[in-house]
Design a binder for these strands. Structure first.
Lengths: 306, 306
DNA sequence: GCTTTCAATCAATTTAATCTATTAAGTTTT
DNA sequence: AAAACTTAATAGATTAAATTGATTGAAAGC
């Protein structure tokens, strides 16, 4: 049984004439005759009473089968409709993940842009650690994730979005408040507050200032389960200083009179934020859309990447 | 799009492995790969994310399409079920017509036999004039009709069932009650009661005795819209005589002490009852079944036909 | 009896489907 | 790093099917 055969019998049932039905199906009359004969043999059922001159008559069973054939054809048409709808890579659901230290600062700018440029695309956001996002991405639970380098996973492709310098956040009455720039090594021995293990940003800061690991006080290692926002409030409360990615501080929304920003003296420590997706992910246009929109966000303090 | 392709994508979606899916479909892996590629190109949609080693992943749109494909395949299966059910020619509905002067005397004997020999066949009976039955038959509203010769319609095939002699029915105190046999011409001038125009039996009687048309009284021409049963009762009341097909009188159920049967002297007038059906009617087994069962009815007084 | 109509059949061709063998790409093991 | 392994894609050859124009056969009308 083939869909073509079903189309043929429906046509014959409608036209009640093999020749006309063949014409309607854009095939020759023998083609149609043979196809129907084949189907009748396969089903072991006579679908039509043939009589020359007079009209073709459908058998009772043929009537039922033609009706069912129409249903089948209708359902196949739905397949075309589904693919028609969904062939636009910028429609449907897109599940985007982002690490905790990027999501709150990038997504508020990104989402409106995506809404505008791909109104048919439904965005679902998840914030998590790099490791969890990576696993979700590989399992297909996420379509793309925003992480920071280093990130190298088999089967995963990445594209660098921007380079984000780190800055130092201090209490407005901190002793460094008059400093122009901070040298990385000056962080050693300070009350440096960092996120807990699992946050890649923590690792990146400690990578930039290895001595902090051994010589700073316990704050460097605590704040488990916390967020940059919490740390920011603690800075405003004078509990200590912290290192932040610039996008989390330079945005006017996250400013506070109680917190002052200090830049690092060159070479500025920084991280490169990237988009990652499965190498064989089919909606490449959606990926490109995300990339373009992130780069057009105009995040403060970042360095663009060509 | 073909049903085979749909089967392939459903298999791949289930097995999540091209090779295994191909095996399940009893085809080689390239066959399946090519078919899916073809479908993807036709729909312009990526159904699967391929990656070697790791499992195949279905795209969102692919998931929907596979689901729809399953629905299509399910509906096609219904076609097989329908034809499976209905391929027995001795099942389903059979619409049988009979003329008024045969139905009441043949069908009570025929129907139980058919019930026994084809219990799955639902019988629908219609009694009408030959002309109406013929039209219904040609329009496909009836599957077969029981009529009497002459009957010759284009595209209609007939088979003679039995030859039915005519008999004379007289009141038990009629002057002919002692007669052994009646000659046809003796009917001329009698109070002969016949059915109205439209009943072929009327024509057949008048054909056997042409002089009755011109020389009998008006009764010969009246009794419009009546039935043999009415006439029989009128005979019992002594209103007149009539000619009946033997099956309507010889059955014990239709006997009455007030009516006596007289046979015609040879050559006995008679009619040949036949089954008629469309030449291309597909359920020939059902036709044969009807024929066989009618001939086994053992109707009284008939002559069988070889 | 001739013509017309219409589906079935025939013979030839084109098209499509399928296969085996191989390649390419990615993964895992050594 | 290199070799071994998996897995899907590709290539080339073969087989099966679909399709066609021409013809035939059956039935009906003139």
């Amino acid at each position: 049984m083939t869909l073509t055969e079903l189309r043929y019998i429906v046509a014959v049932a409608q036209k009640k004439h093999f020749g006309h039905a063949a014409q309607a199906c854009f095939v020759s009359q023998p083609t149609l005759s043979i196809a129907i004969k084949k189907l009748e043999e396969e089903l072991n059922v006579k679908l039509f009473e043939r009589s020359s001159k007079n009209e073709i008559r459908i058998t009772d069973i043929g009537q039922k089968i033609v009706q069912q054939a129409q249903k089948v054809l209708q359902e196949t048409h739905v397949i075309n409709e589904i693919s028609q709808q969904g062939k636009d890579p910028l429609s449907g659901t897109f599940k985007l993940g982002a690490i905790y230290t990027i999501g709150p600062y990038l997504l508020p700018d990104l989402i409106p842009g995506l809404r505008k440029n791909a109104p048919k695309m439904t965005l679902i956001i998840e914030e998590n650690f790099t490791a969890n996002l990576s696993q979700s991405l590989k399992q297909g639970e996420l379509d793309a994730i925003i992480i920071s380098y280093p990130f190298d996973e088999p089967g995963i492709e990445t594209f660098p979005l921007y380079k984000e310098p780190f800055v130092v956040a201090i209490y407005s009455h901190h002793k460094w408040v008059e400093k122009k720039q901070i040298k990385v090594n000056e962080l050693v021995g300070q009350d440096l507050m960092l996120l807990g293990a699992g946050h890649c940003f923590r690792d990146q800061v400690l990578l930039a200032c290895p001595k902090c690991i051994t010589e700073n006080n316990e704050l460097t290692r605590t704040l488990e389960g916390s967020s940059l926002e919490t740390i920011r409030h603690m800075v405003a409360a004078g509990t200590g200083i912290t290192v932040l990615p610039c996008t989390s501080m330079l945005n006017s929304q996250h400013n506070s009179d109680l917190i002052k920003i200090k830049y690092f003296s060159p070479p500025q420590p920084s991280r490169t934020v990237a988009l990652a997706w499965r190498k064989h992910y089919p909606r490449k246009e959606a990926i490109q859309l995300i990339i373009d929109n992130i780069q057009q966000c105009g995040l403060p303090g970042i360095e663009t990447i060509d």
